[in-house]
Design a protein around this nucleic acid. Structure first.
Lengths: 340, 340
DNA sequence: CTGTTAGCGCGTTCAA
DNA sequence: TTGAACGCGCTAACAG
């Protein structure tokens, strides 16, 4: 450890130790002619500092290129300064695997949506992935807040909420009462599908779906579709094995073409079916708004659950909560139709 | 601040301050009957501690559930304890946008590959995204190491390397000499395509490509394809507007079908073309190994650049470098053919 | 091989 | 409204 001299503009700042060229609070304080505590206050409680000194500090900080040291402030504050995106694998959906991998197309979008919020805050985003909810090790989880990624099982919700850390459960969590959550409205999404087909002049519609027993969001979407269809006077039927057996579903559709409008529980199902059967002239609508649907010779509209907005909003909610603010237990991001 | 007593097993550990229930080095030291420095050494330089005391410490740490505090160690060490994945937007590729968004299908894979390495290290992964290389603010970049994401422009390479922070430039960086990089071998990938078609018994092959002037990797892939084709005695031609005008390319293919084998610069191009023309019986091979190609009625093999491996390896390289180890300037991850 | 000790940069009391 | 002083948990130099 030795003494070095840092020159900045016309001011000479003496440092006790080398500090690797980093600019500390001490340098700013000296340059602004105030105490280090005042510099600290400018960043943590600006209102408690007189406007004159505040300006002085900010000017000096600007000149020196000062950035508060996150590790130091976290250490002092006794927090980690991080929030964690907690992601559980979906081992019970191996049958679904190929498609799930595709769904990751919005992963980058989500991450960037989160980043956008957190990089302006005092929090740093951490990523954590476990195979299953039971693998979460409380001692590994050192963070101030948790964003539960793509949660659609009670087991996952309980595991994330049970850590004793402020959290927001995201995506398919509208019905997990008693938890803080930011969710899509699958029921409304299904209703949107019915409305779209109705507006297209359809009368006898069909919903292609599957895995109803295992996948809760599928049930919600179907419920919304059937409910709204009834209200609108649409005659609606369900082919509930369309995901497991697209060829079979296509065969049914081909046999007689008794439907004049088709909704699918997700775009991939519809894309699969369109590989088997040409549905020219029949209005169709998918779900998830995957951009790849435009790769087909025939494209179609789709319900967009707006994942980016869900996570963007959940980041804001978490920050509010961590700052001691009040947040609603449930924040719903309504889906929209993407005509693509 | 007040004194509290922590009981652990049969040992009573007295703490000076509350510490929010966290277990510190002091508690471990006291329980193990050693000094705090010894505890520290067990984690940072285990070889310098006698086996007996090491065991004592590890046992106490295990009982107490001790985890070293990252912010504190980083602060003391004068490092950030983080590495950053630095991502530049590709504004000059707006024409490419729809497809680029699709390419993000492997983003989650990459992130998880990186996580896998870093979560076992002392480093935490940070994410940073800028619109263009010029937007990188040196003062914003507070990290110990950088992984340059998807770098394929000299400008990006220079920006990342010029920060004065250890870095690895990833993906399409094989030719950026004078930098540390972990790259794919696009030339080899193109050669693989030629070899595949040769093995299928083709004689007159065709490469569907595009944006050759703007996108360097496309030129590399083509170079590899043409070079290896020549060596194998394949007659090869190029349709270099296949991405801009898939319908036009399809028309050329349709007109006479003078080719008995087809390679494409990427899977999406091939998928687009397959929407226009049925190429039953003609061997084809794509590039990028996007899983969605299986959605088509006809699937095809593809060259897999193994992005997950690229980033996984680059994480290891960066850690080695940060630990003072020697690493090669260029590490190539060879592509493989994915039959899908 | 081990213990003692001095800060890393900061937030936060406590007095003034 | 301001400044002095303390210590968060840890690493590394030094002395033994």
């Amino acid at each position: 450890m030795y003494t070095c001299t840092i020159t900045c503009g016309h001011i000479i700042v003496k440092e006790h130790s080398v500090n690797k060229g980093k600019v500390t609070r001490n340098a700013v304080a000296q340059m602004a002619g105030v105490s280090t505590a005042t510099v600290s206050r400018v960043y943590n409680d600006p209102a408690s500092v007189s406007p004159v000194k505040r300006e002085l500090v900010l000017e000096a900080a600007g000149d020196l290129g000062y950035r508060p040291n996150k590790q130091a402030s976290s250490l002092r504050r006794g927090t980690t300064g991080t929030v964690m995106l907690l992601e559980c694998g979906k081992p019970r959906r191996s049958y679904y695997w190929k498609q799930l991998r595709l769904f990751n197309w919005f992963y980058a979008d989500i991450i960037h949506g989160l980043q956008e919020v957190f990089e302006r805050s005092m929090y740093t985003l951490q990523l954590k992935r476990v195979e299953k909810p039971g693998d979460i090790d409380r001692r590994e989880i050192q963070t101030d807040g948790i964003i539960g990624f793509d949660i659609d099982l009670q087991e996952e919700a309980d595991a994330a909420a049970g850590l004793g850390i402020p959290y927001i459960l995201c995506h398919h969590t509208a019905s997990f009462q008693g938890n803080f959550r930011c969710a899509t409205d699958n029921v409304r999404g299904g209703a949107l599908q019915a409305e779209y087909l109705f507006e297209q002049g359809c009368g006898r519609v069909c919903c292609l779906t599957g895995y109803l027993a295992e996948v809760y969001p599928h049930r919600e979407r179907l419920e919304g579709f059937l409910g709204r269809s009834k209200e609108l006077g649409l005659q609606a039927e369900v082919i509930d094995y369309a995901m497991e057996d697209p060829k079979g579903a296509a065969a049914v559709l081909r046999r007689g073409m008794q439907f004049d409008g088709i909704a699918a529980v997700n775009d991939l199902t519809l894309m699969n079916i369109l590989q088997e059967i040409s549905l020219d002239g029949v209005p169709m609508i998918g779900y998830d708004a995957v951009p790849i649907r435009h790769l087909l010779s025939r494209t179609f509209p789709s319900v967009d659950p707006r994942p980016r907005e869900i996570y963007h909003r959940s980041a804001q909610l978490l920050i509010t909560r961590l700052s001691g603010g009040e947040i609603p237990e449930l924040q719903v991001i309504p889906p929209v139709i993407s005509l693509g």
